[in-house]
Design a protein around this nucleic acid. Structure first.
Lengths: 348, 348
DNA sequence: GCCCTCTATGTAATCGTTTACATTTTGGCC
DNA sequence: GGCCAAAATGTAAACGATTACATAGAGGGC
């Protein structure tokens, strides 16, 4: 592999001069510049970024720590991150890790010396594992809020989104509204539940804990929760699932039992995954701008990096948007025409 | 930031000894080991991987170059790669890049010195841009076959998958089968078309080029291609789309025009994306094990790395599997029960 | 012609590790 | 006790870049 020394020798100059030319630093005569560029090109010299970052102590790389995510969420959040990172000349070092304390610490250790900062997504409610990290590199926490005030965080506007959806159901006349809760100890799940309760309270509806069913974000959980709802003596007229997968599971159960949606039972989800609009009936949901989530996380991180992490800690949230479709009673059929945005482009 | 020198000073030993303890190389007395471990732990020392890889010239990192992919494909291929990479102690440096010559070269340049090898996905049919790379690091090409024999490649069994699907349609009695082609100059698209033609030929059906409609893998393209099919004077009884997105677009068009699927028109796709089974009617498709694609690409790359890239070049393919649902006439309703595998776990 | 400044270039230290080689210590054996 | 091998530790040279500092010419002002 050809190094800067080889180029210097070939061009009969010192390595310093080569470095100066290639980085545009320091004064070099036009002739020498031309010569060095020519030689470097001819020898197919490519600078060794590892060596460079050792001396400059800048890696131009951001670490990304994600739990084991599926589908849309994963790809969209990465897309958002990569867009913003690339715009600023950064790369992404991605690692899927168990979101527990050990996993995160191991991953961050492994990243020391190869990243300038880390975006870590840890949906666990008490993600304070990140508080006393072994390093002092900037960290942005995604989808949960750290207890201390050591690091920045970015979350989804879960509570407000859920509240709006439940309020929408109430406005359509529903009084007994069940919720299928998300995974236990999950921050998003807890916040969505909070939003549900808030909406009920605002409408003066008493909370009925038998209407709060356990779930874990899987389709199967939504399916069995819906079956449970159908068996209730004073049956709810609406079900709000803490995510779309569970809402889809619930739709399956209802269809199987011959319960009409939305006439006999309204169903709403959260996330607005691409599948939602293809359901029968199309599923009302709370849209989460996942791509933006990634983009803003990186923005936050880059700010922490350039400001040497000595700014006041930030707590930001990305806002959600209600998407009402037929499953909660919207009249217009929203399927049938190709959608404007979510075309599955590119390869296969 | 605490370095190995700090630890050495604090423990009153030389850096060499610290290094030996931490890497388990060379003989060190038990007492010294204990001492150094204690000191390193107390000082929260974390080795600087950048410095380490400079001297060892191993980065334990694989570069991944992907075009701008959406949804499932992106996340699944990364999952497969990361699983295998992690199992072998490697990290993933991910970069989305235009798959053209310039983009790829820029990306690979930027990766020099931070990766031990690269998996590059370049669906373009003539991806020989990769042939004379500026570096000599091992490369595995995904989803297309390089012209020369310089690098390994891994592709999808496109031709065979398409052939099987079209044969299936023929077996169900269809004689006039249209195809909605994939993006021009796309390797997968070309191979799927080849499979389609092969199946027809095997069945002794003459090829009719008016039945080969242009497409570009988007839903919109599928939609308008289907409209075109409906307008034909001797209307085909089946449509095979080169990917599911187009098949879904076609389904929309047919539903809009009141054409019954599969009775008046059978529809089949390729990829078996999660959406496929939720269509109405559920879409028959050719299943592609995306995760496996990623995993095997990394396996191939790791082999190239450990064997210093001096083995014979490999051309491998991952095999596809026919998934027949109602859109081509399967009787059984395959929707309604939660699926076994594709539950959307984890966060939101 | 001398001195000073400015430009162009070179020299060498540095980043944080690993590791070949040198040196010291230990312990066994005669 | 002296000798020798083996074990434990230290010294210093890499890896491939950047950059502070030193040096050498060139040119200008007096």
């Amino acid at each position: 592999m050809v190094t800067i020394k080889d180029v210097a020798r070939e061009a009969k100059v010192s390595v310093a001069t080569v470095s100066r030319v290639l980085n545009g630093s320091g004064p070099v005569s036009d002739e020498t510049k031309r010569l060095i560029r020519e030689v470097a090109g001819r020898m197919r010299y490519v600078p060794h970024s590892g060596a460079r970052s050792l001396i400059t102590s800048k890696t131009q790389t951001l670490g990304v720590l994600l739990p084991d995510l599926y589908g849309e969420f994963f790809s969209e959040v990465i897309r958002g991150m990569d867009d913003t990172a690339q715009k600023n000349g950064f790369h992404l070092l991605i690692s899927r890790a168990y979101a527990d304390r050990h996993g995160i610490e191991t991953a961050i250790r492994a990243m020391r010396g190869r990243v300038d900062g880390v975006v870590a997504m840890s949906p666990d409610v008490d993600a304070d594992a990140l508080l006393n990290l072994p390093s002092t590199i900037p960290v942005v926490l995604l989808c949960s809020v750290p207890k201390g005030d050591g690091i920045d965080s970015l979350t989804i506007q879960n509570c407000r989104g859920a509240r709006e959806m439940v309020t929408h159901l109430i406005e359509r006349g529903h009084r007994r509204i069940a919720i299928i809760k998300g995974a236990a100890r999950n921050y998003d799940a807890a916040e969505r539940l909070r939003g549900y309760r808030l909406a009920l309270k605002e409408a003066g509806i008493d909370r009925d804990s038998s209407l709060e069913l356990d779930g874990d974000f899987t389709e199967a959980a939504g399916y069995s929760a819906a079956k449970k709802v159908l068996g209730m003596h004073d049956r709810p007229t609406a079900v709000f699932a803490a995510n779309d997968s569970m809402a889809i599971g619930a739709l399956s159960a209802l269809k199987e039992s011959g319960v009409a949606v939305p006439d006999e039972m309204a169903v709403a989800g959260f996330d607005d995954i691409p599948l939602a609009r293809y359901m029968d009936p199309p599923l009302s949901s709370v849209h989460v701008p996942i791509c933006e989530l990634g983009a803003r996380a990186v923005d936050l991180l880059l700010h922490g990096i350039t400001h040497k992490n000595d700014h006041a800690r930030r707590r930001e949230r990305v806002s959600t948007k209600l998407v009402i479709r037929r499953s909660t009673g919207a009249e217009e059929a929203s399927v049938g025409r190709p959608p404007p945005s979510t075309a599955n482009r590119g390869i296969s």
